[in-house]
Design a protein around this nucleic acid. Structure first.
Length: 450
RNA sequence: GAGGUUGUAGCUCAGUCGGUUAGAGCGUCGGAUUGUGGUUCCGAAGGUCGGGGGUUCGAGCCCCCUCAUCCUCCCCA
């Protein structure tokens, strides 16, 4: 006999957790649907070539690869094998991998189905993704993302729409959040202004950490990466800008930077007359790692809770280009369902109506009444009321304990007398009240007692 | 990939300086109670002390290795 266990970073979801997760998914989905997004599902596995090179070197390492079936070493390069060159051997022995996010599979889908799609195409997708990350708090190796993306338009009104989606979904879930916004072009403008445009990625990675390691830490980080004293000084001054408007003069020589500011302007103009329930804040330090973002970038943080971002997204001007369909702009957001779950748990934010399922438990004393109870239960179910029958007729004690443990609010006791009269003894578990009723009367009572 | 934490009954955890037969609570099962639950009382079952090796007269405890877990960094949802 072996002790069963789960792979690192994965979890089971028991009935209560599962109900709560469904609640999160349903809430987010209802908002997606209201905003005109259409459902999409893609396979858990993709061809590895679809996934590699889309998330940076770091991302490639975090991809779960699926070993080929059959004699997977047969055609492997003998030299690579002898050298134990794992990195170069992988493509030869693994042609598939588990998806890392929902955006790249979506891009793949769009390219493959362009003939059937009408653009702009808005799709939502709620499915698990896998990352070979080291698990820790709020980080899992299998987790769900809830994505909404629009592809085939560069209108900035979609950025505004996606902010509304974040706002409404988190309001519905009862999680106060701050929606942070920035623009990759603004970041690029900052790099240009400091004369470090060629080190754009290094720069963003460093300033992304500002709120975590402070200005001193960022300075060290940049110096460590070989940035000059004056470049660091310029960057530091820029980071102190009180608003994005204050950056205008800085971008006198940066066309891209000015463009980024204009885009932010437009987005906020759209939102001007639509009240939001959560704060939207320009955050110059927001960088986001995924390499394909090109315009506005978004991130959501739960207020007053120690948790990494619970949502993120942005615009990617040319995601489908790598799949042979250039010039298609997209913008999307992602909800981290598992982190949202953790946050709701910390906030005690789940509705308590999620627990009840079975409304009534039937109890019988012997074979005959058990059969009668079975028929009664069936009629109740036919009336749309979730009902159960205890499998063993006999002692009531066990049956009552079962009802209590399963939090079943009503029990229906069926004995000789009840069977003779075609009735049931219905007991309210909360109040202890009991009354003799027919199945029809009972169906009516329970239907109205929710 | 780097660093740390914790592994003892189904679950949560005690276990003294290395010393006889490893404990508790909860849960499970049976009984008190053959038509009325969540309370109470009585009883029972349940352990290769994560695994392997070592030190010792003697290891749950000390040492080495290993596996798993959680956490931190990196990065992310």
């Amino acid at each position: 006999m072996q002790k069963p266990s789960l792979p690192e970073g994965t979890r089971d979801f028991g009935p209560e957790q599962s109900r709560r997760r469904t609640y999160i998914f349903d809430t987010i989905r209802s908002v997606f649907v209201k905003f005109g997004f259409q459902p999409l599902e893609t396979p858990a596995m993709e061809n590895l070539s679809t996934l590699t090179g889309k998330y940076g070197d770091e991302g490639d390492q975090l991809l779960f690869k699926i070993l080929n079936n059959g004699d997977y070493l047969k055609d492997a390069d003998a030299e690579l094998l002898a050298d134990r060159n794992s990195a170069r051997l992988v493509p030869q022995i693994a042609k598939r991998g588990l998806r890392y996010d929902l955006t790249v599979p979506f891009a793949r889908f769009v390219v493959m189905n362009r003939h059937a799609l009408t653009f702009p195409f808005k799709r939502y997708q709620i499915q698990p993704v896998w990352r070979a990350d080291r698990p820790q708090k709020g980080r899992y190796r299998e987790f769900y993302q809830c994505d909404a993306d629009v592809i085939g338009s560069d209108s900035l009104h979609y950025e505004a729409e996606l902010i509304q989606i974040y706002d409404e979904a988190f309001a519905k879930l009862g999680i106060p959040v701050t929606i942070k916004i920035n623009n990759r072009k603004v970041l690029y403008g900052i790099a240009e202004a400091a004369g470090v445009a060629d080190r754009f990625m290094d720069m963003t990675v460093a300033i992304d950490k500002l709120d975590k390691i402070g200005i001193e830490g960022v300075r060290k980080e940049l110096a460590g990466r070989g940035f000059s004293e004056e470049a660091i000084a310029t960057l530091e001054k820029t980071l102190e800008a009180p608003s994005w408007e204050a950056l205008r003069p800085v971008f006198a020589d940066s066309e891209t930077g000015r463009q980024g500011l204009d885009e932010l302007d437009r987005v906020f103009q759209f939102l001007e007359k639509t009240p939001l329930q959560n704060a939207v804040k320009f955050d110059i330090t927001l960088a986001r790692g995924l390499t394909y973002y090109t315009g506005c970038i978004l991130e959501v943080a739960a207020n007053g809770v120690q948790m990494g971002s619970i949502g993120g997204g942005g615009r990617y001007a040319d995601l489908t280009g790598v799949f042979g369909m250039p010039g298609l702009s997209g913008v999307g957001v992602s909800f981290g369902a598992d982190r949202i779950y953790d946050v709701l748990e910390m906030l005690n934010g789940f509705p308590d109506t999620l627990t009840e399922t079975v409304r009534v438990l039937f109890m019988a004393f012997d074979e005959a009444t058990h059969r009668y109870a079975f028929a009664c239960m069936s009629r109740l179910r036919a009336a749309g009321i979730p009902a159960e029958l205890y499998p063993e007729p006999g002692k009531l004690k066990k049956q009552f304990e079962y009802a209590a443990k399963c939090s079943i609010p009503f029990v229906a006791i069926v004995g000789e007398t009840e069977m003779q009269n075609g009735t049931l003894n219905l007991k309210d578990q909360q109040t202890g009240e009991q009354q003799t009723v027919t199945v029809e009367e009972m169906a009516e009572m329970l239907a109205g007692s929710v």
